[in-house]
């Protein structure tokens, strides 16, 4: 469903991605691992449509459509979701208002009826409970004053609520203690489905102990240097990135 071909991306004239190829099929979970500065976050932002990135060459096709030509909200409507590494704090916007506005915008786009306040409350409560999110957190302004773990759980709540077809998880494990990590991993695993693909972007292997990927790719210097099965993640954990980088050099 996602087909990235020879993608070159730069930021303010500085090349970040240099010919990245990646193919993710429906129902698959892929992990992209790489050291700091390898271009991991750029990959997640370019796929979700953040401004400030120049595509110099190549393409990203999503169900055969030119993904990079779409506005961020159009990508969301088509089923693309990014779980942010650093979820944004927005004072004055209530978490519930935000969740309902987002869900109803997507439902409208899919030609479904909007949920009224009561229906929405039922759905969100059930999904929040599964992620260990309390009512008080939902009552606060969006991500304002949330701990690192709470922010990540809130991202997972959005993932569960919006039910995307392609979920991109950017460093979802950072800032989580081991208990929170398990809760988040269970949430993600519950969403594994033949109708959904996931791209897990991470520096460390530990999240992949809980969410076992079908494929693992090593991203360094803006390209995929190696791909393999889930065992590649454990190899990286044991040996570090240095060997692969030197092999490729």
């Amino acid at each position: 469903m996602l087909e990235i071909r020879d993608l070159h991306v730069s930021v303010e004239g500085r090349a970040i991605l240099n010919g990245l190829d990646l193919s993710v099929g429906l129902g698959e979970i892929h992990a992209v691992m790489g050291p700091n500065g390898s271009g991991k976050s750029t990959l997640s932002y370019i796929l979700s449509g953040r401004e400030g990135y120049a595509v110099d060459r190549g393409e990203a096709l999503y169900d055969g459509r030119d993904l990079l030509a779409l506005e961020p909200e159009e990508r969301a409507a088509a089923g693309v979701f990014l779980a942010f590494q650093y979820p944004v704090e927005i004072p004055g916007v209530g978490t519930m208002t935000f969740l309902r506005t987002a869900l109803n915008a997507l439902r409208r786009g899919r030609g479904e009826d909007e949920l009224d306040a009561m229906q929405f409350l039922r759905v969100v409560r059930e999904k929040a409970r599964a992620l260990g999110i309390g009512e008080d957190m939902l009552k606060r302004a969006l991500n304002v004053g949330f701990s690192g773990g709470e922010k990540k759980r809130n991202e997972m709540l959005q993932l569960a609520l919006l039910e995307p077809r392609l979920a991109i998880l950017d460093e979802t494990d950072s800032g989580l203690d081991i208990d929170a990590l398990k809760v988040v991993a269970e949430g993600v695993n519950a969403l594994r489905s033949p109708d959904r693909a996931m791209l897990i972007i991470t520096h460390y292997q530990r999240l992949l102990d809980h969410i076992v990927p079908d494929r693992v790719h090593v991203l360094a210097k803006g390209r995929i240097l190696r791909s393999g099965g889930s065992e590649l993640a454990r190899e990286l954990e044991a040996r570090g990135y240095t060997d692969i980088l030197s092999e490729a050099a």
């Binding site: 449509g49 401004e51 961020p72 979701f81 990014l82 944004v88």
Partner: peptide, 15 residues
Amino acid sequence: DGDALFYLRSRGIPA
């Protein structure tokens, strides 16, 4: 705030 705007749009909320 451009980050806040992108965050909302990435959830399907029109600009």
